[in-house]
Design a protein around this nucleic acid. Structure first.
Lengths: 164, 164
DNA sequence: TAGACGTAGA
DNA sequence: TCTACGTCTA
């Protein structure tokens, strides 16, 4: 199996097929699918521009996966998932900025979906294929702070065979 | 290789030899050496009594490894490693209580040493063998709060062959 | 040095 | 639900 060399890949990763499943976020890093171990948005600089390379939708956030063909992804920052800190407006930087840039650049973004077994144990991550950022907007979160939303649409023609 | 069944083992773990090295804390969990993914002290209840089964000395704390034959291990709790929270006195519960009980019970405690490469990347964990809790005491930490210390002495006759 | 959709067990 | 000697990249 291909092993991550530390360098970022834009688009499909050699040796990884749509439908491949993983147990740990670190494994996504190993194979080069998604290098951030906790961060939901991975990105890198290509030609001087920060572009999103992959996102992980694990569930925790609101309004994520409508159906496999269209994903509404919540931006990062603003302490959305950190109840110990005061909520703040999200800003257009880091992963959010990269996703915005990817909208214009029209580059392929890998999407990984996390899911939990019914008993809440045994999470796993499925690589569901390549997407394009279709649009983005800001909206008011339930906590009264601005949150970024990104709509990613799946590129057609990618067969997803769930592996057991 | 033996895989952790979820049940705790007291003493040597089948299939794991002194000198075996691991890359991630989760791997220690896999093989049943140390189930806590972050916690330094692993323990379980045996015959109604909480006993320590293993400790991981990764460095972060003060005064850990004098030499391979004797380890002074700092107790857990008191927010010692959490600068975001107020320091407090450590208490004789959880892992600290288990180590105290293991002093009286004289049970084998597995010891894993974490080390870092000189550049700070690539940490790894080495299983260095079985130890016995020799004594414990409380002392005042630099932050003015009580900290537990446990002296663990290595059981003789365990050859440690560093594997490359 | 800080931020991030982490993990397992008590 | 909370604690814990985590782990990676920017």
């Amino acid at each position: 199996r291909f092993v991550n060399t530390g360098k970022q890949i834009l688009g499909a990763v050699p040796g990884v097929e749509v439908g491949d499943e993983f147990r740990y976020r670190v494994e996504l890093n190993f194979v080069g699918l998604h290098r951030q171990v906790q961060g939901g948005i991975d990105y890198a600089t290509f030609g001087g521009k920060s572009l999103a390379t992959s996102v992980v939708a694990s569930g925790g956030y609101a309004d994520d996966l409508n159906n496999l063909n269209s994903l509404t992804y919540t931006g990062q920052g603003g302490n959305v998932m950190n109840p110990d800190k005061r909520p703040e407006h999200q800003e257009l930087r880091r992963g959010n900025l990269a996703l915005k840039n990817s909208l214009k650049a029209k580059n392929h973004v890998r999407v990984i979906c996390g899911s939990e077994s019914s008993d809440g144990r045994a999470r796993n991550y499925t690589y569901v294929g390549l997407y394009l950022v279709q649009k983005y907007w800001k909206e008011m979160g339930t906590h009264g702070k601005l949150v970024f939303k990104f709509q990613l649409d799946r590129i057609e023609g990618q067969s997803l065979v769930r592996k057991k």
